[in-house]
Computed example of a mutant assay.
Amino acid sequence: MEKFQLYNFAFENLSRKNMSFQEVFQHVKSFMEKDRYGNYKLMFGTDSQVHPTYTRFITGIVIQCETKGAWACIRKVIVPRRMNHLHERISYETTLTEEIVGLFTEERKNQLIELILPNIYRGASLTIEGHIDIGSGNKNKTRIFVNEMLARMEALGIEAKIKPEAFVASSYANRYTK
């Protein structure tokens, strides 16, 4: 039972539209229940695209099992203006990812951990990652924001990933920003 009302948190994927966060969490949990010996990664990331009159942000949630594939969904947020300043856009992408990570409360994370806990010594695992659509290469304009955004993800207690490892943001979410 939700203790507070979640606003504007509608999720979708290719097979389902307008899912609540509780439905998303149940899909993640059900996916993990199929193989309690699996090596799981729960990953979050946001990408954006500036359009003529608005900026579209897509946040992806992906639960992946090394041997069993993945389940994923997205959340769309439209800002009704062009967000042309790179720092503002990257910062808002990180904020949207932080919002979704925050929905995975300690209680919910513990429910997921309890699914695999009996099998940890047999190789089962769960890691949680925040994927940020930035890179540290000399030619990458976003490199000056790397430390700031990494610190924000790490403050949430999750493993931060940047390009090229940040595929939930730079690849999965990116597909839906166009």
Rank of each mutant, 00 (worst) to 15 (best):
Y37C: 09
P52T: 09
I90V: 12
M43W: 07
A10H: 06
T94F: 00
N174A: 12
A166K: 01
L117W: 09
P164W: 06
R175T: 05
S125G: 10
L14W: 04
Q5G: 08
A155G: 09
G38I: 09
M153A: 10
E98H: 15
K17C: 12
L150A: 07
K109V: 15
L14Q: 15
S30R: 13
S20D: 04
S136T: 06
R152D: 05
K139M: 10
I134N: 00
Y92D: 04
M32I: 03
I144S: 14
N18R: 12
T127K: 15
A10S: 13
F104G: 01
R108K: 15
C65Y: 09
V146Q: 13
M1W: 05
S170K: 13
Q111F: 08
G130W: 04
I74C: 08
Q26R: 14
R108C: 11
Y176V: 09
T142K: 09
H131A: 01
M1C: 10
Y40W: 12
I63E: 00
A155I: 05
F25E: 00
G60C: 00
L150N: 05
Q49R: 14
K178R: 08
K34C: 12
I58L: 01
K76Y: 04
F11P: 01
V62N: 02
G38S: 01
K3S: 07
P164N: 07
L6Y: 09
S91R: 14
S15P: 05
A151G: 06
I63F: 02
I120F: 15
I78C: 11
W71G: 03
N8Q: 14
T53L: 08
K139N: 12
H27V: 11
L96R: 02
K178H: 14
I158L: 13
V24T: 05
M19T: 01
E12I: 09
L42D: 00
V146N: 03
E154R: 04
I58D: 04
E129I: 02
H85C: 11
I78G: 11
V168G: 01
M19A: 07
N13A: 06
K3W: 09
V79R: 15
I162Q: 02
D133A: 10
D47L: 05
K109F: 07
L86E: 12
L156W: 02
H27R: 11
I128T: 08
F104L: 01
